[in-house]
Structure formats: structure tokens, C-alpha cells
């Protein structure tokens, strides 16, 4: 340990950083880089979507009409609202309002559960109808060539997204537990911020998935 950080005893400052500002800068940059990798991960799926939509325009149009639009809209509203609440949680902890922050996080987590529940019900309907991907496809109402690929893309994209919802929710639950234990204050709130950023990314992906899957 160098002597330079001896006069600034901050329990959150790692030994190889000079100042907490520099560390926060590094952590935020790391998070944005990670979000960049997530963007490219989903880019591959969006590529699959665009390619097959290009091939099977009619089938995609028809199949998208057989999704439950209201479930999609509800989920969109739920996710947008949860995005708002997680932003408010960050805003609250920045001002040291721990209780407000905890409340907002709880609301966000409830939204996440709601989203997953609605998604689960949607999946259940599709399973019953036989609107399954690839070789499992036996949905009688949409028989246009390529409809099976629509459901392949649908399940892969929403499945990967749902996985991210679960991960994001777990992160938020962990952060909530730390908020409740009083780990954060107006002088140290970076984990809340990063967890929030991740959750916004989940919202971002859905913002694109919703019109592409339900509305085209």
C-alpha cells in the first residue's frame, strides 16, 4: 500500500485507486462496456429476426397478429414504469433517502415479477396452441411458410430477454438487501446506479422487441 491513500480512509476505495472519483469513473466505464457487449449479444438475435422477416414477410406479419397484443402492451407499460421507478430509486439514494430508495426498488422488483408472470401466461398459451419453434411447430392457424421461424425467433428473443429480466431482478433484490442494511448513502451509491443501468438495458431491449414482435 502506498502512503497516498492513508489520509483518505474510505472503506469503498480499493488500494490501487488514488481517489474514489477515479474508482467510480472506472466502475461506470466498465458497466457501460458491459452494456455494450449486451447490445451486441442482442444484435445477433435482431439480425436473425431481420433476416427471416426479410425472407418470410407474410408469415411474420400473420404470426405477429396471433400474439396477445394486450399482454404485450401491459408488459411494455410494466417495464417502462419499472424503469421509471428504478431511476427514482437512484435519484432517492443520491439524496440519501434510503427508505424511498428501498420502496422504489421493491416496486421495481414487483414489476419484474409481473412482467415474468404475464410472459409465462403468454408462453403457456403458445405451448397449448402448438405455436412452437422449428420442428415442434404445429399451429393450425398460421401455416404460411416461415411461420415456424417466426416462433423460433420469438421464443429465442423473448427467452433471452426473460433471462435478462431474471438476472436484473436478482441484482435488484441483492441491491435492495444492501439498501435495507444501510450500505448506501449519498456519498456511496454506485452499485444502485449500476444495477439501475442494467435494468434500463432490459427495458431498452424490450422497447425494440415489442413493436418488432407484436406490431409488424
Amino acid at each position: 500500500m502506498s502512503s497516498s491513500d492513508a489520509h483518505a480512509p474510505n472503506p469503498h476505495l480499493a488500494h490501487h485507486y488514488e481517489t474514489i472519483e477515479k474508482q467510480d469513473y472506472a466502475v461506470r466505464l466498465g458497466m457501460w462496456l458491459f452494456l455494450g457487449t449486451e447490445v451486441l449479444l442482442f444484435a445477433g438475435l435482431f439480425l436473425g429476426y431481420t433476416v427471416y422477416r426479410h425472407f418470410y414477410h407474410e408469415a411474420f406479419h400473420e404470426a405477429s397478429r396471433h400474439l396477445d397484443l394486450w399482454a404485450g402492451i401491459t408488459n411494455t407499460v410494466v417495464l417502462i414504469t419499472s424503469s421509471l421507478s428504478v431511476a427514482l430509486a437512484y435519484n432517492a439514494i443520491k439524496q440519501g433517502k434510503t427508505k424511498l430508495c428501498a420502496g422504489m426498488l421493491i416496486f421495481t422488483i414487483v414489476c419484474a415479477f409481473t412482467f415474468l408472470a404475464i410472459k409465462g401466461i403468454e408462453y403457456h398459451h403458445k405451448f397449448q396452441e402448438g405455436a412452437l419453434p422449428g420442428k415442434w411447430y404445429h399451429y393450425a392457424e398460421v401455416t404460411a411458410p416461415g411461420a415456424n421461424l417466426y416462433y423460433t425467433v420469438y421464443f429465442l428473443a423473448t427467452g433471452l430477454h426473460a433471462f435478462h429480466v431474471i438476472v436484473g431482478m436478482s441484482i435488484l433484490i441483492w441491491i435492495l438487501s444492501r439498501v435495507l442494511r444501510g450500505h448506501f448513502s449519498e456519498s456511496y451509491y454506485v452499485p444502485v446506479e449500476l444495477g439501475g443501468l442494467y435494468w434500463h438495458l432490459v427495458d431498452l431491449v424490450w422497447i425494440f422487441l415489442f413493436p418488432l414482435l407484436y406490431l409488424i
Partner: peptide
């Protein structure tokens, strides 16, 4: 956000588009 963070995010979007354009 500092410039580096903006750059990172924008670059990731740009390369997603590169992937799309190359395939299309």
C-alpha cells in the same frame, strides 16, 4: 456521462449496425 461512456455505447450500436449491413 463522461465522453468515454458515451463513445462505448455508441460504438456498440454502430457495430451492431455493421453486422446488419454486412449480412443485408
Amino acid at each position: 456521462a463522461p465522453g468515454a461512456n458515451r463513445l462505448v455505447f455508441v460504438v456498440s450500436l454502430v457495430f451492431s449496425i455493421v453486422l446488419m449491413i454486412g449480412v443485408f
